[in-house]
C-alpha cells in the first residue's frame, strides 16, 4: 500500500494564523484587565509568533495533517490523530475533480446513495487531474459488473 503524508503548508498556515489571532487577542485582553494598557513591541510580537508557531504546529499535527494510503483495492484517509477512514474503491460509482478555491483541488468520490468522500489531492501534493484519472480507472476496474456501468448506453 502506497502512503503519502507531505507537509501541507496551507493547512499549517491556517493553524498558525488561528493561534496567532487567538494569542494576540488573549494578550491584549490580559493586559487591558491587568495593566489597563496595550504594550506592543518587537519582543512581544516575536514571542507571540513563537508561541503561535509551537501551538499551531501541534494543532496542525493533531487536526489538519492528512495522511493517505491507497492500493488497487481501496484507500485509508486520516486527518491528524483522528480515526482512520477506510474505504474500498468498489464502494464508489462516480468521481469528480472539485475546486475548493485558491487553486486547491479535491478528488470527490460519490457512492450510489449520494454519500461522498473527498481526497485532498492538492494538500497531498498529488497532481489532481492525473490522480482523478487514476481513481477513475481503479473504480472502473473494481465496479461489480466491470464494463456494465454504462450498459445500454453508447460506447
Amino acid at each position: 500500500m502506497r502512503t503519502i503524508a507531505p507537509l501541507q503548508v496551507m493547512n499549517l498556515g491556517k493553524s498558525f494564523v488561528i493561534f496567532f489571532l487567538v494569542t494576540s487577542l488573549a494578550w491584549i485582553a490580559a493586559n487591558y484587565v491587568i495593566l489597563r494598557d496595550f504594550p506592543i513591541g518587537w519582543p512581544i510580537f516575536i514571542g507571540n509568533v513563537l508561541i503561535s508557531g509551537l501551538v499551531g504546529w501541534w494543532w496542525y499535527k493533531r487536526s489538519y495533517h492528512a495522511r493517505f494510503s491507497w492500493d488497487q483495492e481501496g484507500f485509508e484517509l486520516q486527518w491528524g490523530s483522528g480515526n482512520k477512514s477506510s474505504k474500498e474503491w468498489q464502494d464508489f460509482s462516480r468521481v469528480s475533480l472539485f475546486h475548493e478555491g485558491y487553486g486547491r483541488f479535491v478528488v470527490r468520490l460519490y457512492q450510489d446513495d449520494g454519500a461522498r468522500v473527498d481526497i485532498p489531492a492538492s494538500d497531498l501534493k498529488l497532481d489532481p487531474s492525473d490522480f482523478r484519472f487514476e481513481v477513475m480507472e481503479l473504480i472502473e476496474s473494481k465496479s461489480p459488473a466491470e464494463g456494465s456501468r454504462n450498459a445500454g448506453k453508447e460506447s
Binding site: 462516480r94 475533480l97 472539485f98 475546486h99 475548493e100 487553486g103 482523478r132 445500454g152 448506453k153 453508447e154
Partner: peptide
C-alpha cells in the same frame, strides 16, 4: 474554466469525465 477566464462568467468548481446522462456519455 476552473482556474482561468471561466471565472469571469461563473465559478466552475466541479468537473466530471465520462459522465452518463440519458443514453449519452
Amino acid at each position: 474554466l476552473m482556474l482561468g477566464g471561466g471565472k469571469w462568467v461563473a465559478d466552475f468548481n466541479e468537473s466530471f469525465w465520462d459522465y452518463p446522462m440519458g443514453d449519452l456519455v
